[in-house]
């Protein structure tokens, strides 16, 4: 495997009033291509901040973030947006679907940033929805679907433009156990069969078991690393 992500001496802090709050001080981390990493830790440990930096939506105060040999922490905002469109699929805890668009239109959104024709976009959307077993719900609005179905639409949206990396922020945090397991199996399938690199932030140890390895963050440091059985 080759390194997809390489974080070198990453620090992140912000100022609140007169106080400087440090989230990371000297974080080093490597994520290989095809990995499925679960990041766990108590609230305030910096999990989501780390995920945001990996996704190029937040910048480190110092240090370097490398992705597939390209340093991304110094990219401009516009270039970061292009980088995200080309490389990253996001899956959020509360799905973040557009309520005024049906499932197919939601899934199509990342493809509007490509040069694909309307016909090709439609074909890709069908493929993605079929992969998450929602082809028959393409015309349904988010309000007409269950939480699990909405999260599967969100997964279809994340993979439709075939990014290398999926970033999942508590993807099962709003779902019951059985539905959560279905979602996690889908993620596992995407990792194993389609070689998607997945980084998942979760509080749920049962969810973390679906990952290939688990990183525990506490006070901005990795304290223990566990490997899936």
């Amino acid at each position: 495997m080759t390194a997809l992500f390489d974080l070198k001496k990453v620090a992140k802090s912000f100022v609140k009033g007169k106080e400087k709050i440090s989230i990371f001080d000297d974080l080093n981390m490597t994520i290989e291509e095809g990995d499925f990493v679960a990041i766990m830790g108590p609230s305030g440990s910096g999990k989501t901040t780390l995920l945001n930096m990996l996704g190029g939506v937040d910048q480190p105060t110092s240090g370097e973030v490398w992705f597939a040999g390209e340093r991304i922490d110094s990219l401009s905002e516009g270039n970061l947006a292009k980088w995200r469109a080309n490389n990253v699929g996001f899956i959020f805890q509360f799905y973040n679907l557009m309520p005024m668009l049906n499932a197919a239109r939601n899934v199509e959104l990342p493809l509007l940033l490509t040069k694909l024709s309307g016909k090709q976009r439609k074909k890709n959307v069908e493929t993605a929805l079929t992969l998450v077993e929602l082809a028959d719900r393409a015309k349904h609005m988010p309000s007409e679907m269950s939480g699990g179905q909405q999260q599967r639409v969100a997964i279809a949206r994340a993979i439709v433009s075939d990014p290398k990396l999926l970033l999942c922020d508590e993807p099962t945090g709003d779902l019951d156990r059985a539905t959560a397991d279905e979602i996690l199996k889908t993620l596992q399938l995407l990792n194993e069969k389609f070689n998607k690199t997945i980084v998942m932030v979760t509080h749920d140890p049962a969810a973390a078991k679906y990952a290939k390895r688990t990183l525990h963050l506490d006070k901005g440091e990795f304290v223990e690393e566990g490997m899936a059985a």
Binding site: G55, V57, E77, G78, A81, K82, R84, A85, N86, F90, F92, F94, N96, M98, P99, L109, P110, L113, R157
Partner: peptide, 14 residues
């Protein structure tokens, strides 16, 4: 705000 930020995260321009 969540919709705007989601679109920006996906890669839509400002």
């Amino acid at each position: 705000s969540a919709e705007i930020a989601t679109l920006r995260a996906i890669g839509f321009s400002s």
